[in-house]
Design a protein around this nucleic acid. Structure first.
Lengths: 225, 225
DNA sequence: CCAAAAGTGTTGCAGGTACACCCATGC
DNA sequence: GCATGGGTGTACCTGCAACACTTTTGG
């Protein structure tokens, strides 16, 4: 008797390194499909679930295999299981989404079969992966607001403007610098390192660090009573 | 070569019919396990995923098979896939959670192998099902607040006090009647039927109905841009 | 009339938005 | 000194929590 096959895929987000003075953009890596179904189209990194590997571990492994990077944040998104989502075979995909530090993206793997795409310049995608990416984007946007997740995009220290740029790119809207600063300061998640970033054409901004005590919220089993 | 097996389970919530004048309580049906592993313990309704059935359809079907009821709300919760969560065999469970109308619960099936339990009087549970129920409870609580989901517990018409009772039981805290009324009225999700419920020992309360235009928010693919 | 729930009004606090304004640096 | 982003102060608005108060029924 036939079964559904179980796959694990990951939507990986990073900010493009800000070459030049332009705004950074939200990017994600995709892999080219080398066999049917969907040959030649692009797809999310992933693969079949090994019997002896946890779901999250499988997501982290395929992330590492395709990009060479380790996730700064990794979280389950949704499980997609429509009967006809893959032609010829029943496939259920447990999908994760991940954030990686932007300054590591330069070292990330990219060849003719693995490429990074801008969030609004996606190529033709295999299966239902376009809808999955859309859902992952909406989840990223809501999560960013009610938990300080932006640090997963940034390095060890950062300026207030860099942090604000993360929010502006992800939320796709301009934020008031004054109010943004206050919101972040009163949230208690930031620590002023005392250092300043010099070399800017203007007044040198303070460098901040994330308060390690403000741990990122773990997903399940938080409210078990 | 072995694969992980795919199961679908559902956490089903209902309010106990308010027999007497006591507060209603949150209840859920469990099934007794008739074989190893976990023989004799109680477990969530569910089963193996058929190749030709969608995930949500499988959840709705097992819900109907164990309780005889149709879900007023059904939504994917999380997919659990730790390697050792089921002894002897690798099982990945896609878990849904559901709400059913409280006034139908009386007609619900219940025999020696299917019983309804109060949320804080749970019996010994098989596998990781206790943790799953805890997670479902936390999700129910947060969802209730930012989307008018309470109507899934209620019948066609209801009083403001009945609606408030749903919130109070689920959120486990007392709510101010005056402020609760205003919050609901300004939300625009309620329609005054003009009728009043008579036979109460005191001033007869107005009967409300949910505005059908205020549709429940569909889960995935909302923000695909 | 009285008890008790239904329903209305008012006040005050907290968080967020808009925007005016000062500060420090490179050129 | 001047342009520019860094950083501070403040007024206003809105939503909500608290709570006093009026209304309407059954006994």
């Amino acid at each position: 008797m036939p079964h559904a096959r179980l796959a694990v895929s990951t939507v990986i987000f990073a900010l493009s390194p800000d070459e030049g003075a332009e705004r950074p953009s939200l990017r994600l890596p995709l892999v080219r499909r080398l066999r049917e179904p969907g040959l030649g189209r692009w797809a999310l990194p992933g693969g079949w679930l090994p019997v002896d590997e946890a779901l999250e571990a499988a997501a982290a492994r395929t992330l590492e295999e395709t990009t060479g990077l380790a996730p700064a944040h990794l979280e389950q998104l949704y499980t997609f299981g429509a009967v006809d989502r893959s032609p010829g075979e029943r496939v259920v995909s447990v999908v994760y989404w991940a954030l990686v530090h932007s300054d590591e993206v330069e070292q990330a793997v990219a060849d003719e079969n693995v490429q990074w795409f801008d969030e609004d310049e996606l190529p033709p995608l295999a299966f239902d992966h376009l809808a999955i990416i859309g859902y992952a984007l909406s989840r990223l946007r809501t999560r960013l607001e009610y938990s300080g997740l932006a640090h997963a995009f940034l390095g060890e220290t950062f300026t207030m403007a860099e942090l604000r740029a993360v929010y502006e790119v992800v939320l796709r809207k301009r934020l008031d610098p004054a109010n943004f600063r206050r919101t972040m300061e009163t949230s208690g998640a930031l620590v002023d390192t005392g250092e300043r970033k010099s070399g800017t054409p203007h007044r040198p901004p303070a460098l901040y660090r994330f308060d390690p005590r403000a741990a990122p919220p773990r997903m399940p089993f938080a409210g078990s009573r």
